[in-house]
Computed example of a mutant assay.
Amino acid sequence: MKKRLFPSIAILTLSLLAGCSKPSEPPVAEPVARVSTAPAVRGDLPLNVIGYGTVQFDPSRQQVLTTQIESRVAETLVQPGATVDAGSPLLRLAPSSASSLDLTQALADAAGARDELARQQRLRADGLASDGDVERAQTSANDLTARANTLSRNIGDVRTLSAQSSGVVDAVLVSPGDVVPAGSPLVRLSEPDAIQARINFELEDATRLASGDVVHLTGLDGGTHLTDAAIATIDLRVDPATRMTSIIVPLPPGNGFLAGEAVRATAVGDTKSQVILTPRSAVFTDEQGDYVFIDQQGKAERRRVESGETNGDLTEIVSGVSEGEQVVIKGGAILSDGMKLTSGDTATGQAVNPEAPK
């Protein structure tokens, strides 16, 4: 009877243990990442070059006022940047002490030339001089007399130097008290709308540009000035201080730019034709190189790629992605290979077609 009891107790114990054990847990759901995708497209990729420079007045359309005799600057009447009309007073000039000596010498030279003319005329009457001798003496007498008359008009009381036409005072090149020789520049006037941008570029970038290429200019001094203009000149001399070259871009009137303003210039230096393009946000980099995630039938496929040039929001894919494949452009940072995907936003091919960025 005891032998029959032991099996019954064992069965009862197993039944009690089975009744106290926890129910089996349901399987863990596989994570699903919500991403945005876009197709890789084939198109042209413009390669921009960027330079920086300054707006300045066009030197070819500037007027430099000078003095005909050595003078002393008595007073400056304008400041750089002022707008003046034709006839506006700019400087007051007084003759220097040397100017009086110049006048005395000029009067003596003119008198001597007239005496020589009279002598040559007498010799010609006596047949001892030629007509050519008389003509040369006449020319010399006329020139020296004109110079003496000019000095006589300019030497006297304080005189005023006035603007010959309307414009902007680009520079006052003298200060009160300066003694300036004859022919010295005193004031530089510029036409208000005759402005240009001188943009500095690396030599390698400048050689990729040509006269007539369009440049997009953006003001950097707090304004919102934007304009497109064509390159007029490419100066391939290298500045020894900056080791850069420059281009000259005339600016259209009424664009809002001012002389002295700093600008940023963007131009298309080259174009890569018919390459595979993806948004730049699709490309990731680790210690082994670049990679992207491809949406393969709802699962993430991590794929190694060779990337090329990048311009704006677009990156060239040299190898690793085919045209039309859906690349993850948003949400890829949290993905791992093989993860399930749900697409929250799928762009069309038109969304990433390249344009020359401005």
Rank of each mutant, 00 (worst) to 15 (best):
L16K: 04
V41I: 12
F284D: 08
L277P: 07
K272A: 09
V180P: 03
R159K: 08
L220A: 03
G312V: 10
G256A: 04
D286F: 01
S100H: 14
Q56I: 04
D270Q: 09
S96C: 02
E204C: 02
T207C: 01
I195K: 10
L14T: 04
M1N: 13
D109V: 04
G298M: 03
P240D: 15
G289K: 07
A86H: 04
S336K: 07
G212N: 11
T218G: 01
E202Y: 10
A241T: 10
G183Q: 12
T76L: 02
V64F: 01
P252A: 11
L45S: 06
G132S: 14
P181I: 04
D102W: 00
G260S: 11
Q120G: 02
E116Y: 07
S71A: 13
S165N: 15
T227V: 05
G320H: 06
G320S: 13
L5N: 10
D178Y: 04
R237V: 04
I155T: 14
P252Y: 00
R264I: 04
G19Q: 11
A351W: 00
T67H: 02
A333N: 08
R136L: 13
P95D: 10
A267G: 08
I231F: 00
T242F: 05
S190I: 02
L77H: 05
D102A: 11
V327E: 08
Q62G: 14
T348D: 12
Q56H: 08
D286T: 09
N154T: 14
S307H: 09
R42E: 13
A265Y: 03
A110H: 04
L144F: 09
G183N: 10
A230I: 01
D178V: 06
D345R: 11
G256W: 01
L128T: 09
V174S: 06
G312K: 04
G338R: 03
R147E: 12
R72T: 13
V55Y: 02
I317K: 03
D143M: 11
V73Y: 02
G308L: 04
L47R: 03
Q63R: 13
T104M: 12
T233S: 11
V73A: 01
A300W: 02
T218I: 09
R72S: 12
S166V: 08
R280E: 14
T310M: 03
A232V: 04
E316H: 10
A125L: 14
G260E: 12
L203C: 05
N200L: 10
A110E: 07
G51H: 00
V55A: 09
I294G: 13
V318G: 11
R92F: 00
E306Y: 00
S319E: 14
E75A: 09
L209P: 00
G219T: 05
A333E: 11
Q297W: 00
R61V: 01
P7T: 14
A38V: 06
A259K: 06
G331T: 07
G222K: 02
Q274S: 15
V318E: 14
G332A: 15
S88R: 11
Q79V: 14
L101W: 06
G132T: 14
G219I: 03
R153F: 02
G349L: 09
Q297L: 07
M244N: 13
D313K: 08
G312S: 11
A137Y: 00
